[in-house]
Nucleic acid binder design. Structure first.
Lengths: 167, 167
DNA sequence: TTCATTATGACAACTAACTGTCGTAATGAA
DNA sequence: TTCATTACGACAGTTAGTTGTCATAATGAA
């Protein structure tokens, strides 16, 4: 009981840390994305496509970013109108198109990368490469675990489940 | 250059992981908070006060949660109207009141704790107590680092800076 | 093939969060 | 004490994100 409580508190503090860091990153991202006409979310969407190194569907992007399917779709429509992404036919799905980043979009993410690379040393100060990787691994485990909880509790309503699993 | 690039990529993946986990936790929180009439954000605000073990001002809560000052204020006003928090005089600041959680609010957080404690084993599966604590420590370092960047870049506009430092 | 179930995109409505502004109070330096 | 600077709460306006619904398509089992 006491040990469980300590574990619960440790978990709670970690949850708070995630919220706080999420807010800090968002604010920072909005700062260095502003001169590019991007928001943190739109920069992340472009980054998600680049990181995957292949075109993705809207639900896949929503999954990768922890957003609802509709929120990702809205931003994709906006990025499409701006010419930063383009639709491609999806051989595996007639209506669910693939979104790829355009040359114009790649140019933006390159600029963004340069802007925040300046601050990499400061942002990751005191953390080794191994610690960065370890933190990512731990967070990924938590994401998968919580995803399992959500799916178990989830009814049959349309809450952004995806048919095509990423990877 | 190559090493720097590897570090940049590791950092980028970690940032994505934070966004994803943030979304998962928010969705999960909205699920188990729904029967209590709470949202994840409001539950977090109540939790932030409890975790601090002392009343906090609105800007302090915003800081703790990675939200803007105004967003925290809005939720606090709502929680105040619902009777889950109460204002107290602040001996250190005439206008910036302290917000404390009420007995009614404590009752809610206790219920929420019970609801998500059920899933603690599943949510934190595969992670030791030490790993949970380590992850929290690493994220806290990143938050502090990025906060430094934001404050350096920040102009003089009112963007939710706080006068009274937490702790 | 048939049919029930679920996913997708579009749309609408609602809520949450951010940005900006203002009057006022607190701070800190001269 | 004086005064310039900054933070606070309130308010308004805008944007982003969630929830819900619908028609349609994809899936999977009988």
């Amino acid at each position: 009981m006491f040990d469980d409580n300590a574990r619960l508190n440790a978990f709670s503090e970690l949850v708070f840390g995630v919220f706080r860091l999420n807010g800090r990153i968002t604010e920072w991202g909005d700062q260095f994305c502003a001169p590019l006409g991007l928001s943190t979310t739109r920069w992340q969407i472009l980054g998600a496509i680049e990181l995957a190194r292949r075109p993705l569907t809207a639900p896949q992007i929503a999954y990768a970013m922890g957003l609802s399917r509709q929120a990702a779709q809205q931003q994709l429509n906006a990025l499409l109108a701006l010419g930063h992404v383009e639709k491609q036919a999806n051989p595996l799905h007639e209506r669910s198109h693939l979104y790829d980043i355009t040359a114009q979009g790649k140019n933006l993410t390159a600029q963004a990368k340069a802007l925040y690379a300046e601050y990499l040393n400061q942002a990751a100060a005191g953390l080794s490469d191994e610690q960065l990787a370890l933190a990512q691994t731990l967070l990924a485990s938590l994401s998968r675990n919580i995803e399992g909880i959500i799916r178990k509790e989830n009814g049959k309503t349309d809450k952004g489940n995806i048919r095509m699993k990423p990877d």
